[in-house]
Amino acid sequence: MDWTDRVLELEVGPVAHGGHCVARHEGRVLFVRHAIPGERVRAVVTEDQGGSFCLADTISVLEASPDRVPAPCPWARAGGCGGCDFQHVTPPAQRALKTAVLREQLTRLGGLTGGLADTVEVEELPGGPLGWRQRLRLAVDDEGRAGLRAHHTHEVVPISDCLLAPAGLLDDLLERRWRPGDEIEVAVDVRGERHLGAGVPPAERSASVQHAAGRDWELSPGAFWQVHPELADTLVEVVREWAAAPGGGTAWDLYGGVGLFAAVLAEQVGPRGSVTVVESARQAVADGERALRDLPQVAFRVGRVERVVTGLPDPTVVVADPPRKGLGRTMVDELCARAPERIVYVACDPAALGRDVKLFADRGYALAALRSFDAFPMTHHMESVALFRPADRS
Rank of each mutant, 00 (worst) to 15 (best):
A375I: 09
E279A: 02
E124S: 06
Q210F: 11
A299I: 14
V140S: 03
G115Y: 14
G328M: 00
A167C: 13
C81Y: 01
G270N: 09
Q94R: 07
A339P: 01
V156A: 08
H88W: 06
R304W: 08
P180L: 05
L112E: 09
L231T: 07
G364C: 12
F360V: 13
L312F: 15
W178A: 07
K98F: 10
V186D: 04
D356C: 08
L353R: 00
Y345R: 01
W252E: 01
S274R: 15
T330H: 10
V69L: 13
D294E: 13
E143A: 14
T90Q: 02
V120S: 04
S394V: 13
G273S: 05
V140P: 01
P340Y: 02
E383R: 04
L387M: 10
S208L: 14
P180F: 03
G144L: 12
E63I: 09
A320L: 05
G328T: 03
V275C: 10
V344H: 02
Y365W: 06
H228I: 13
L170E: 00
F31N: 07
H211K: 11
R40Y: 08
R135E: 05
R24C: 05
G197H: 05
A35R: 02
E334I: 11
E341R: 10
V385E: 08
E47H: 13
T90D: 05
F300G: 03
L164H: 09
A352S: 10
